[in-house]
């Protein structure tokens, strides 16, 4: 044991430090252990299942399915959540409403994220007057409170699901644009970007291979939380009669119908659609919270 090299000892020393894991494996492992992420995932999964299974388990035609004899019946074995003012089964309508709420929620935010991130990256990369123009534009959109802006947009274009979706997208864009811009700028100044640039990598390649992957985690977080507020806004528009039009089941519109019978003591017609909104939104908020904890090491101590 006489000829011991430096390297040999170094290797032994290395062996006692922590093994290196891939960052995404670490994230997933932490996420799986994070309590609110667990609860959020369960809730979301539940509503996704409901949305997917509803038409299979209970095919339903909203137009012909009313039954005036059965109107405003309290929960019973036949109608677990009771019936609404037209005698329609509330549970079934909620299940079918999940398709609209989740669909619109995800779709509108997806649209907004793509547009917003593109605008933000362009602004952050270009700088100068283009940056100024784009960001002042976002400031202007942000000066009008989200819900008011969405209402105004729907008011101009006319009520309906498509316009509501568009309106929600528009009010969601500025957040992503700002986020993507600040990431682009902070990363532009970053050492490893400088290194890539000095090696002659082109701008679009830097954007694609360095900036986007690095800004991914805050965007994922904002996406999850964004779906939550999109569902809420959709419900608000529906409640005000500006979203999905009757007779199609949309949670907010269902509530606005039930509100007319507030005095009749039909608590079930009010409680269950509201709970559906709250729990699905809560699911996305919980997951978003968990993701933020797990993905943002700065907040972790």
């Amino acid at each position: 044991m006489n000829d011991i090299t430096f390297d040999e000892i170094s290797q032994r020393a290395e062996a006692i430090t922590t093994p290196v894991r891939s960052p995404w494996a670490v994230v997933l492992r932490r996420l799986a252990r994070h309590r609110s992420a667990q609860m959020g995932s369960v809730l979301i999964l539940f509503f996704v299942l409901v949305a997917v299974l509803a038409p299979i388990v209970y095919p339903y035609n909203a137009i012909v399915d009313s039954n005036p004899v059965n109107r405003l019946k309290p929960p019973s074995a036949a109608h677990l959540f009771g019936t609404d003012s037209l005698g329609r089964d509330i549970l079934v309508r909620i299940a079918h409403g999940a398709r609209i709420s989740l669909g619109v929620g995800v779709l509108s935010v997806l649209l907004a994220a793509v547009v917003g991130v593109l605008l933000g990256l362009i602004a952050g990369q270009a700088g100068g007057w283009l940056d100024n123009l784009l960001m002042r534009g976002m400031d202007i959109l942000m000066a009008v409170p989200d819900l008011l802006l969405a209402i105004v947009i729907v008011a101009i274009r006319g009520p309906g699901l498509g316009n509501a979706l568009l309106a929600i997208s528009v009010v969601t864009v500025p957040g992503y644009a700002r986020l993507a811009r600040s990431m682009a700028i902070s990363l532009r100044e970053n050492d490893f970007i400088m290194a890539a640039r000095s090696l002659g990598v082109s701008t679009s390649e830097i954007l694609r291979t360095h900036i986007l992957p690095n800004s991914l985690s805050p965007i994922i977080v904002q996406f999850t939380l964004g779906v939550a507020s999109a569902i809420l806004e959709m419900a608000a528009l529906g409640f005000l009669g500006l979203g999905q039009q009757p007779p199609w089941p949309e949670w907010g519109a269902m509530l606005s119908d039930s509100a007319k019978f507030l005095g009749a003591g039909a608590w079930w017609a009010l409680t269950f659609p509201g709970l559906a909104i709250m729990l699905s939104v809560l699911g996305f908020n919980l997951l978003g919270d968990g993701l933020r904890d797990v993905l943002d090491p700065r907040l972790k101590r």
Partner: peptide
Amino acid sequence: VIPGSVPNLIDLPRGCRFAPRCRARLERG
């Protein structure tokens, strides 16, 4: 130079904590 670095304080080596980096120990066997 002392080879290696301070051990991970979660999974500590059994015995002397410096042993994995210790040249004298290896020289004396």
